[in-house]
Design a protein around this nucleic acid. Structure first.
Lengths: 199, 199
DNA sequence: AATATTAGTGGAGAGTTCTCCGTTTTGTCA
DNA sequence: TGACAAAACGGAGAACTCTCCACTAATATT
């Protein structure tokens, strides 16, 4: 590992962040970023195999913070005992995180098209979310909070419903985050509850 | 409207269908289609503003048949009386239709990226599905089959969960259509039922 | 210090999508 | 039938993503 390579990488990230902020993600071309960073296109693509990868790199800090925050919340002494309530907490934080990072998340998602489409399900972002959803759902079923269900599929459904492009559309419709959260809760919390649980 | 214009259009559709079948949608470029059809790129783009539009045109017959079939089913004398059961029927047919047309549906969906992303929600495909979902959900609520819910959001959620890219991924995971249908039913039929309805 | 090794570089160019606009073809109307 | 407007054409080229590979320079070796 050469020392200057690391510098180039940092320079690319810095230039990308600046250009994305100034003119928007989709309005910024990879060539433009390479030029601004003072490197060739080859170097840019060696470091980030595509634009989505670059978006992911820019999201890394926020995503890491989000994961830590969620882990902390779920482990906290005052965390809800109910698995479904913890799931709701996770979704709440997730929606807030998405709202803040919409441009980069959309940029990332859009890069997973064509040949690359299947890759999104191998990204750490998806993996971690799917695992978190699954764990909580599994626990809810084991504790009898939720009735029987297909955990793997349900986690995917939750992922699909909280996908950033849908959220953008809902926002344009005028839906606030709270309304989306309520809708998700209705489907994935209340809807899954053991039927006997109604107060 | 010139006579030869209509011919060109048909020729484009025929060439596209042939190439898509032979080599796959994403492996076929618009130039290739234009060339095979014996027209210039300009003519191709005058008729179909982008590849997704072309996919939609190829889907037209199947989509029309699907709509008719569903309308017939829902109106039939022996159609279930329950709105939720009719919704289930719709989803069942929808999943079958998607399964058959996955390549074109994916091609269509992928074209709605970048500037065009919001357009998918204005496409007749989305509009019709959303309306059908909404109508049935509305009816279910009015009849007391389903408990209170955000109809518009729930219809969007159902749309997201039955999106072709997710279905492809599920297939790769080895999930059969039946398993997907069961998962959807669990969330959008059972999950929405009035809690008292349990046998 | 000289040399060898190899990670890293950069930009030309292939392949796309889509636009623009000068040219051609068609239908109409005198 | 001849002339005209409008509709349709087609392909050059702009803008883009991403690959390829001859070259360069940082590090390891002696």
């Amino acid at each position: 590992m050469r020392r200057d390579a690391a510098q180039n990488r940092e320079q690319i990230i810095a230039s990308a962040r600046q250009l994305f902020t100034a003119q928007g993600v989709s309005e910024t071309s990879m060539n433009q970023i390479a030029q601004a960073a003072g490197v060739g296109a080859g170097t840019l693509y060696r470091n980030f195999s595509h634009k989505g990868d670059l978006c992911l790199a820019l999201l890394r800090d926020d995503l890491g913070a989000f994961r830590k925050q969620v882990n902390g919340l779920l482990m906290a002494a005052d965390a809800p005992d109910s698995a479904l309530e913890r799931l709701e907490l996770l979704v709440d934080k997730l929606l807030k995180m998405i709202e803040i990072n919409i441009p980069l998340l959309i940029g990332m998602q859009e890069a997973y098209a064509g040949d690359r489409r299947p890759d999104i399900y191998h990204s750490p972002y998806y993996q971690w979310l799917h695992e978190s959803f699954s764990t909580l759902l599994q626990e809810a079923v084991e504790r009898g909070e939720a009735a029987e269900l297909d955990i793997c599929f349900t986690a995917d459904a939750l992922f699909a419903v909280t996908a950033p492009p849908l959220m953008v559309f809902q926002q344009q419709r005028g839906f606030e985050r709270q309304r989306i959260l309520d809708g998700v809760r209705r489907l994935f919390i209340q809807g899954l509850m053991t039927k006997g649980d109604i107060a």
